[in-house]
Design a protein around this nucleic acid. Structure first.
Lengths: 225, 225
DNA sequence: TCAAAAGTGTTAGATTTACACCCATGA
DNA sequence: TCATGGGTGTAAATCTAACACTTTTGA
């Protein structure tokens, strides 16, 4: 075994999963009470240490898969957090990843099993370590991207109404959007396709269901608010 | 000493410094030939391992200070890079930081001492490890931010002409900007102040020098292209 | 006197914003 | 029949983009 860097020190590296979902018109995220020391009982993101044969991305996917049972999710790195004493146990550098899931696909058994709760993003408690900062950064990142990248669809079922899509964007941006202007803009995007299917669950009259066409989007990724 | 996490593995964590400068109308960055194994002789960013008593930010500042002798620079985290075999020596996770400096303040002795060169960002050679990717990500980040944050001033002297400012933005964006539209927009920003001083080095006629007023900016950070 | 960079306004087109009512349906 | 959410268009204001000539001065 080579040892080019043996005069240097190694540190623990972990990943933390920031899992967002959309439910009842609100942006929520999965947090739980820590089941281990240090910090047992504190609200916390779910995380895990990066193994020796695991890339950061692999570790993040593993952590989020453990939490959600889901793969091929939208996932993005939020950033690396490296204050010396950020973890009360030992020196740990952590890399936060944000994932977006459709709550409808989520198996609630996993939530119970890992003692997790869906908490509204603007009603978060004080969290373990610097997790509040990570979440703040993740939300800021979502806000910057929501109008230039097709994020929102990851928080919705394959078929969704325009009202749902609008609510997702409003929840991310934290502000209201004018309905007529919103729908006018959506019509200019070829990759948001109206289907013949009518949803009757959300209103008496029924609302047309739309779908995000990934192929069309890849051919012409024009997406500007 | 506590050992909460002793069943887990530690890894080497390094920081890499992406130091941008602006010279002769071009965006450049400081790279050098590696002076150590593995990868000796390859073009590379300058980096350093994160010490046990050092935050990521501290390590990044140390590395950039070693390179430039400068403190209080504009510095931002670009991201964490964690592929298993990204470093040919051993497993190293690296966090890239981008710094912007005014080349006029740079002491060239440090450049020589560390065997560094200023290289035009669109004439970069193949670099060690994943450093090309880091740079690509850093430039993308600059492009996203240059119209919404006061980045450009960090690449210029305290007093600068509007032509210089325009050239910096053009170099970052990689596209030309219309001079009249540019100057019209600049006039709408209170935090870019015209001085009475005329610079005669860049033209026979002389050009008015401007300065970035940080205080005014903090009071009203409105900056939209 | 001429080369080289500084400086300056207008207009057409595109985009954004504000705004209010009718529709279809199940309860 | 009425309460609920779905769906639609227009006009004013703002912003963006295109465009060319005059000024100053050192060489």
């Amino acid at each position: 075994m080579t040892s080019y860097y043996s005069e240097h020190t190694k540190v623990y590296v972990s990943v933390d999963g920031i899992v967002f979902g959309f439910e009842a018109g609100k942006l929520k995220l999965l947090i739980g009470k820590r089941q281990m020391d240090p910090g047992r009982g504190e609200w916390s993101l779910y995380g895990g240490f990066v193994g020796p044969q695991e890339s950061l991305e692999d570790a993040a996917h593993r952590v989020v898969f453990t939490l959600t049972g889901m793969k091929n999710l939208y996932m993005r790195q939020v950033g690396a957090y490296g204050a010396i004493d950020r973890d009360p146990g030992e020196r740990v550098i952590s890399v936060a990843y944000c994932a977006l899931i459709n709550v409808g696909d989520y198996d609630d058994k996993l939530r119970i099993e890992h003692h997790l709760e869906w908490v509204n993003v603007d009603e978060l408690p004080k969290l373990y370590s610097d997790h509040n900062q990570m979440i703040k950064d993740a939300i800021a990142q979502l806000r910057r991207r929501v109008n230039t990248q097709p994020l929102s669809f990851n928080l919705l079922p394959d078929l969704f109404t325009l009202t749902q899509l609008q609510q997702v964007m409003e929840a991310i941006l934290g502000e209201n959007i004018d309905k007529r202007n919103f729908r006018k803009r959506i019509k200019t995007f070829d990759f948001i396709e109206k289907t013949e299917i009518i949803d009757h669950t959300s209103s008496k009259r029924g609302a047309a269901l739309y779908r995000f066409n990934k192929k069309v989007y890849k051919e012409d990724p024009t997406f500007k608010l």
